[in-house]
Design a protein around this nucleic acid. Structure first.
Lengths: 156, 156
DNA sequence: AAATGATATGTAAAATTATTCAATTTATTT
DNA sequence: AAATAAATTGAATAATTTTACATATCATTT
């Protein structure tokens, strides 16, 4: 039907916020939201979204969205750093963004981010290869990504 | 048998160098190397190694090792550090965990945490005696504690 | 609008993967 | 060393996931 786009969106949100261990579980979660599809469709959806099924330490499994990697922008604001592949990935949790970099690069890149002087970003905290980015309230993930000039691939 | 350790090593090497799309494929690759096991054992091995099955863009699947490969350490050095009392406490605020360590230990322990390659943890940022742990959305506090192999007396 | 081609989806079956149970080996304790 | 516990594995089965096929829906062209 025409709900596919919407359904895929809901699925990614669900997988981001919930531990889902099987397609049947996901099916039930969707059913609660009035989205009725068969498990076969979910198999196709997950394949499309490149969702991986991975074992957890507690002995169960979890479907995980692909990491938002693939940074590189031809000439972005952090141009020379990102174009050298120093930024490895950026992911979100709640209103926070966590950027992974090559070892040693974090504080340099964090400096760049800070010095963009974007109102959207309250501040950053850098370790060795990880930067915690604290966005202002109400700033969306997309805004952050745009700001970072990051073209990402999160499924399709 | 006693080949398990060795077999796990071979499996990680195979998965690193080859695109393996099913356990049966892996079974054949191992057989070529005189390692004869059943699919059931491989299922267990892959679970142990936290190998995820993920869809590729070409429509097929691939078994992928967890990020930052440490793979062969069943318990790892992390346990070692905590068992020596370097970790003093862990507390939560919102979806964040703050771990206190003995002075100077933070970055070492953060490194261990990162290199567990757990999908549950987005990243860590370490100071001198404090580590900020950013869990993936939807990950519970209990999961984090379990992951850390820590049994703290809850509150009280 | 009719025709054509591409998408989307359910059903059923095939394929794959996970687990139960029993047996065996290996390690630990007495 | 004997006894006991823990770990490893295979066979068979259960559970889960993928896919072939048929239909239906949607989009585009004529």
């Amino acid at each position: 039907m025409k709900n596919k786009r919407n359904r895929l969106q809901i699925i990614t949100e669900l997988l981001r916020s919930t531990v889902v261990g099987s397609q049947e579980e996901l099916l039930n979660l969707l059913a609660e939201r009035k989205l009725n599809v068969t498990q076969a469709t979910l198999s196709r959806d997950l394949k499309l979204l490149k969702v991986a099924k991975t074992p957890l330490t507690n002995g169960t499994y979890k479907y995980v969205l692909p990491p938002i990697t693939k940074t590189i922008s031809p000439q972005g604001t952090f141009n020379h750093l990102t174009s050298h592949g120093a930024v490895l990935s950026i992911e979100f949790s709640g209103n926070l963004a966590v950027m992974k970099t090559k070892p040693g690069y974090a504080s340099a890149i964090a400096w760049d981010i800070d010095n963009k002087g974007s109102v959207e970003i309250l501040g950053t905290i850098a370790g060795d290869d990880t930067i915690l980015i604290i966005p202002r309230e109400g700033v969306t993930r997309e805004q952050i990504l745009t700001l970072m000039d990051i073209t990402f691939s999160e499924g399709k």
